[in-house]
Amino acid sequence: MLPYILRRSAESIALILVITVFTFVLIKSAPGGPSILLDPNMTPEDTERLREVYGLNRPAYEQYFRWLWQVMQGNFGFSLGVGRPVSELIGSALPATLILSGSALALALVVAIPLGIMAAVRRNSWLDQILTLVSFFGLSLPVFWYGLLLIIAFAVQLPWLPAGGMYTPGYETFGDLVLHLILPTLALSTSIMAELVRYTRSAMLGVLRQDYVRTARSKGVAEWAVIYRHAFRTALIPIVTLLGMLIPRLVGGAAVTESVFSWPGLGRLAVSAAFNQDFPTIMGITLIISAVVVLSSLVVDLLYARLDPRVSYR
């Protein structure tokens, strides 16, 4: 096990380095340049001077290595747009994202897995058909539209909930947070829920047809035990795979959801950094997210061994 983890970790670090190079090349080849160089009021002379002051006129490879050197010393640098330490920006955005994606994921799991199981058990029933229809609908809803619709319905027309943000400025209480969390959680969890229902259903269907399930049933094991103890445990493997893919997506911040609901998370930060071509921030976020992706795929691989005794790592 340990050699496996070590080998995977070494691979991961190399992979992350490659990702940062790619990201850097992409930012540098985008037209227009950082927004701090082009406020509409700035003259070309101002642009040139700032380019020099910020070292943006240096060769790209030099800028990259300077950045890498800083990071190796544990310094993510300063945001070009905001002039604040990147670590501070990420540090304040990450909890917001974890709160939102955590609650969206929790809601999705709590709702979708039982529904998916029910749909599989009662295959082709009216419940299954409605669920299929609803989950396809949920999967295809564009969040920028659906989120706005939620805001207009539950914050404008029926003024029950706040229309955006994480807190009411000046009232940063737990209850206030929960109120602000409801709509974005709904918006974000809908597509995850839909995906999870579909996955759980098909995974369960595959398992329910297996011989050992039939054996369990013929031995007279209670139906709920067949479903939850025998079938569901096996069906968990593809579901865990899906979760492994969902987590980096969620940690990276649901960019659109966060933007529509003005949620101060990593996704919104990434969008604004990309728009401003604020490369220290983009690079910092990329580094964090790719680390999470690599780490969560490692964790998923290790979980397989727990869930499926046939899988082992040497």
Binding site: P159, G170, V260, S262
Partner: peptide, 22 residues
Amino acid sequence: DAMVFRIVPDANSQLALLRAGE
């Protein structure tokens, strides 16, 4: 008593906040 500058990147959301009185 106070001024609050809220960070709202999406133009449609800004209008929704105005309509919601926020």
